[in-house]
């Protein structure tokens, strides 16, 4: 049960990454730092007496603004550059954000415990905490809102048009700079919401970002850009596989397993494509 929720939060972050990657051709390595910032937003709101569930939309809005500013300050410089440049630049951002958080908020582990109950089934054989179910529902809701936005709204259509062919979109009068800024901000907002969920169900600390970035990346590689159902399935599958590996190999190898799995997936794709003399591009 807990795996399912982990998977849903990964899937949210991964969906944001796929969005930015597909539309802007930028691999956003500071994805996990947005999750972390969303988590701190929810945590501080909780300290001020706001219910964590209310913290989710607030975190999303704040991160949206943050993402927009970040685009206007930094990211616009790397959009038309080599992908490697964008990887390095966002890696720099990731170090910057995590170290700033460490300096400003301290390295302590925190949580926004909303005080939900835990349910027991079958003579306590199965325990499910309500907060995880609520968070899972919220994750799905955020995903659904996002999909509706991309499908129905004019801005969503502009984003999808730009993803397919930026030059054509520009010729058709779409302000691609604005589309990029919105896409990047939207991604930050999604991660912010995911972070708020993390804050109310688990713990947050300045260094939690990297695993989310890596897992987002794995999910995107597995599911491809733009296929929502596949992203969700890959996210849930990864969450389950990871817990299973932690169970089999021991918790100390769980992270190693995740990173090794990333390499293995890439290798598998490479050898698969090699049969047809194709390349992973």
């Amino acid at each position: 049960m807990s795996n399912l929720l982990i998977g849903a939060v990964f899937a949210l972050a991964a969906y944001g990454m796929a969005l930015v990657w597909g539309v802007m051709n930028v691999v956003n390595i500071c994805q996990g730092e947005f999750v972390m910032l969303g988590g701190y937003t929810a945590y501080f709101l909780f300290k001020a007496g706001v219910h964590p569930l209310v913290g989710i939309p607030v975190a999303a809005v704040l991160l949206f603004v943050f993402g927009w500013l970040l685009y206007r300050a930094v990211i616009f410089r790397v959009v038309d550059k080599d992908l490697f440049i964008s990887i390095l630049a966002t890696f720099g951002l990731s170090i910057l954000l995590q170290q700033l958080a460490n300096q400003l908020f301290g390295a302590d582990v925190r949580t926004a415990d909303a005080g939900f109950r835990t349910l027991f089934f079958f003579d306590n054989m199965v325990t499910v905490s309500v907060v995880k179910i609520v968070a899972f529902g919220a994750a799905l809701l955020v995903g659904a809102i996002l999909m509706l936005f991309l499908k129905k709204s004019r801005l969503g259509q502009a984003i999808r048009a730009t993803a397919q062919n930026a030059r054509a979109a520009r010729i058709m009068g779409i302000d691609t700079g604005r589309v990029y800024a919105t896409t990047y901000a939207l991604n930050a907002a999604i991660c912010g919401a995911a972070g708020a969920l993390v804050a109310m169900t688990w713990l947050i600390h300045p260094y939690l970002g990297l695993p989310y970035t890596v897992r987002s990346f794995m999910i995107v590689i597995l599911a491809g850009l733009g296929n929502v159902a596949a992203v969700l399935a890959a996210g849930l599958g990864l969450g389950a596989a990871e817990n299973f590996a932690g169970f089999i190999l021991g918790a100390e190898y769980q992270s190693a397993f995740v990173f090794a799995l990333l390499v293995a997936i890439l290798l598998w794709r490479r050898f698969w494509l090699d049969r047809t003399r194709g390349y992973l591009k």
Binding site: V27, L83, F84, I87, V214, F217, F259, A260, L262, V263, L266, L267, R270, F271, D274, Y279, L280, K281
Partner: peptide
């Protein structure tokens, strides 16, 4: 055999 950024990411994972 991985090209471009896939090599970068794979080595990052490594």
């Amino acid at each position: 055999g991985l090209r471009g950024h896939y090599f970068a990411i794979a080595t990052l994972g490594l």
